[in-house]
Write a protein that binds this DNA or RNA. Structure first.
Lengths: 326, 326
DNA sequence: CTGAAAGCGCTTACAG
DNA sequence: CTGAAAGCGCTTACAG
């Protein structure tokens, strides 16, 4: 069915060896220009595309980097990161393919199906899974949440620190009774828990009472209920899990007739594109995603090269973006 | 380096044939239970994972579906669609991998690298690219914008109709001078142009003057400038390219001191999660993405089965979601 | 019930 | 400068 190199060889009257040399560039060089052209033309005309499977089998490795995305909804942050990663790796001749880790199939099936050269995890891998992949000759570059070890293949922004920064900013702005707006989606616990821990910790450090917790989904009703609870408790500032939740909080507070930031201040996380468009414009924590993406790309390339000199980890680059909601 | 079936055969004292039979299930059945168990144990213990490349080469096809995403930023709509697709195909033993078509590499490199069984395009493919893939034995399921032919492998929501629906709703709400807020990102032209065409068309049909065009990015400044233009022109309703742009429009109108919807009404497209949280809550056009995803999955499976009975195309399922901005 | 052998399409030493 | 041959790891008729 498909065109093979033998077809090209036949069409151009040379051996498969020559076809391969022409197409891939030979080590010792020198194919007559006429032959070269004939082969190239035949390949072009037949629409020859080398079999990836055969090439991978023969070479013992593929040019594929598999990025495994976490189970949670991906937003603009991940989106940007993937862009950068794909660009950086393309320069090295690698292709990036993405697995959205939400289906029912386990990861294992996946990397077996495609034999990637490297697997980049934007979610945590189970240790036995990492072992299995390594055993199959696959490099693994991971991220882990609040990693406390020094495995250089693991890079993670401290979620806890994000929570702390939110509270520190609110305190700086003169607030003293903090509320926390967590997500309802349980898949986000991996992130929301350490963020909340940071919030709790910073409250304690600042000598404030423990924050008043509420879960908020992306409906006004849910946010309004939370707003009522916070009002009851005298909360004057809310740290939200992320900008999405913060947007709902803003809507809930407005619905309850509370003034922002005078009655209650609100801060999110991510600096999503819509944050500056909220009313009032939303204060948030930005994560300098380009820097992270560049690091991840560098780490992936280092893994490619079998290089044990992992690139230096970038600083967290977290920053408070103050707008009108605080 | 990696464990092969020969290693498993050796460890369990049988031939590779038997290993393969045990692992894949043989056609003629019957392997002694003892052998079976021994092989399984050896495979498990050695951490055997069959080489995808070898298997694909031998079988002549892979179990991979490659989804090619367009160049534009992906939002919750695509996200949901991928979820459904991955789930539906997993049931058929297929794995879904996603290519974010934003890198610098052409698509061609990609499908050559992975030999997918099917390529599903959420963006339009060039005809010669489709030919090349088909020639390589790959099934192609595509979507195209405002497709006017009857190729059953092509499914597309009429973008033009979306624009028409926006205007029809605005007219129904008593508005007569329409503005159009287009995206600044040129990559979105594929969608924005037909949507705008629909808007223009509907204005003409309703006997309204041509809409007043403005480009709006996700900054208040840009939206505010647009708002000034519309005010000048006496615009009393704006159809926005999508909910993101609409959100910016809301912010721009607020900044200009215009009341929504009394001075100017606004309608978006997508029913993004944040739409109901905007102030005021944003009216929009929803696209029933589940239905589309199910269709795409069905079409992909039909292609898998070499089935020429393409599933019936679903109705567009477009609906106006009226909220407070109109 | 199990093994020896062929062959998928490619690349690459090794001979000419 | 170019070709014949081996071998990557797998599956599957075909013999026993």
């Amino acid at each position: 069915m498909a065109v093979t190199s033998a077809d090209v060889a036949h069409a151009s009257g040379v051996s498969r060896t020559t076809v391969s040399y022409v197409l891939n560039g030979r080590p010792g060089a020198t194919i007559s220009e006429a032959t070269r052209r004939r082969v190239l033309e035949a390949a072009e005309q037949l629409g020859y595309a080398p079999s990836a499977a055969a090439r991978t089998l023969r070479r013992g490795r593929s040019d594929l980097v598999l990025v495994v995305l976490p189970h949670w909804p991906i937003g603009p942050v991940i989106d940007t990161l993937l862009d950068h990663l794909a660009d950086d790796l393309a320069e090295r001749g690698m292709s990036v393919l993405v697995h959205h880790g939400r289906g029912t199939r386990p990861l294992a099936d996946l990397w077996r199906v495609v034999t990637p050269r490297t697997v980049v995890g934007l979610t945590a891998f189970a240790p036995e899974e990492v072992r299995a992949m390594r055993r199959a000759g696959i490099r693994v570059v991971g991220t882990r949440i609040d990693a406390d070890d020094h495995d250089p293949s693991v890079y993670a922004i401290s979620q806890r620190r994000i929570g702390r920064m939110q509270v520190e900013h609110l305190v700086e702005r003169g607030h003293g009774r903090i509320g926390w707006a967590g997500p309802t989606d349980a898949r986000l616990a991996e992130f929301s828990e350490p963020r909340l821990a940071g919030v709790v910790e910073a409250c304690a450090t600042a000598g404030l009472p423990t924050p008043v917790l509420a879960e908020v989904d992306l409906e006004v009703g849910s946010a309004r209920a939370a707003a009522a609870i916070w009002r009851e408790a005298g909360v004057d500032a809310v740290a939200a899990y992320n900008d999405d939740v913060a947007l709902a909080v803003l809507a809930g507070l407005r619905a309850e007739g509370l003034a922002i930031p005078d009655d209650v201040a609100v801060i999110g996380v991510d600096d999503a594109p819509f944050a500056r468009l909220a009313c009032p414009a939303l204060s948030t924590i930005s994560q300098a995603i380009d820097v992270q993406a560049a690091y991840l790309a560098a780490a992936t390339i280092a893994a490619l090269d079998d290089d044990d000199d992992h690139p230096p980890r970038p600083p967290d680059m977290l920053a408070v973006v103050r707008r009108d909601s605080t």
